[in-house]
């Protein structure tokens, strides 16, 4: 499953997007920005379905339900939260570099 399947008209993705829209405004803002960041960094989990992203939405839903502000949930450094989240993940950059390494070994 690729990001294409994730995004392109697939029911799962549409449901995910609809779910994001039910979050309070401040949560939506943070969610969109961090999704953009994750898409750029490209942890491999993104190509394996909505698990990583819907996990974040769940975290946010519970935070919102308990009346917390979004930054109380993520901490002020949202980038640090994202990086922790994907600390052990391979990213596009890793995949690319591995490909180059294996090529140069031949």
């Amino acid at each position: 499953m690729g990001i294409k399947d994730l995004i392109e008209g697939k029911r799962e993705w549409r449901a995910h997007v609809a779910r994001v829209k039910t979050l309070p405004n401040d949560y939506q803002i943070v969610y969109r920005e961090l999704q953009k960041y994750l898409f750029k960094v490209g942890p491999v989990e993104l190509t394996e379905g909505t698990g990583l992203l819907s996990g974040i939405v769940e975290l946010f839903e519970e935070g919102a339900a308990s009346g917390k502000g979004v930054l109380e949930v993520t901490g002020r450094d949202v980038a640090a939260f994202c990086d922790e989240l994907i600390k052990d993940s391979r990213t596009y950059a890793d995949i690319y570099q591995e490909a180059i390494d294996s090529k140069s070994k031949k």
Binding site: L59, E72, T74, G75, F81, E84, L85, K87
Partner: peptide
């Protein structure tokens, strides 16, 4: 914060 605990749980 919750976010930190969440990343650990993952």
């Amino acid at each position: 914060v919750e976010g930190t605990v969440y990343t650990i749980l993952i």
